[in-house]
Amino acid sequence: MQIDVKAIFESFVSGLTYLPKTLILILVPLSIGLVVGTSIALVRIYKVPVLSQFFAVFIPVYQGVPIVVALMVYNLIYLMKTNDVLKFFGSSKTIADIDSIYVGLFALSLMMICSISEVMRGALLSINKGQYEASYSVGMTKPQTLRKIILPQVISIAIPALINTTVGLIKSTSIVYAIGIAEILSGALVPSSRKYTFFEGYLAAAIIYWILTILIELLYSYLEKRTSIFKTGKTENKKLWSLKCWRSNTSEKALAEMKS
């Protein structure tokens, strides 16, 4: 099989022109997921009646549905019902006036809400009860405690899992291709369908997604360092410390070997 490097480049450029759309598909669900997901986690931690029971059932059930299936279902509903709904509200618009990207955003947002709420709940549960008590004991209210003491700690704990969720989201954005939303993958395949260079097209898309993922991971690792200063003292210390540990380990091993 011959790989056409020029076709890869062509597909790469063509895919990149759809980068803004993919970024929307990443950033909107991520922000909605962070805000709503964290709220749901709090609702469940504080055991708010009715709501917490509802989410305790809803989230595991919803997470059992593959994102493609959910997307298809929403798309069918969108295709069949949009005109009726618009008519009901007395609008003169039709389905043609409404971008199907909203269907994609809806499906991805719901997915992110569910997974981020679980990430945040785990992080919240890992905070020592003493942190709340200490805060109450100096006279702080519940919202103050959350804002000043708990959430800053939760974020630094949650970041590794959030990287995972976000990388999952980046890759999931490609499936909205299935309902005809133009994003990086479909963009990269535009030249392919003309010249039959599908292999190169998919390869180009893979490269773009890979770069995106790397960038996001770099951003997060910077954030992780920034938010976890309190665990290590200074950010730079972390590396030194691990190096020191490694050294002392090896020297201990060497000592043990010498003795034996």
């Binding site: 003493g130 942190q131 008590e133 200490a134 004991s137 100096v138 700690q153």
Partner: peptide
């Protein structure tokens, strides 16, 4: 004021 057995200082402060 309250002084705890296991200190409970705010870890992020």
């Amino acid at each position: 004021g309250f002084v705890f057995q296991n200190y409970n200082l705010f870890a992020n402060k």
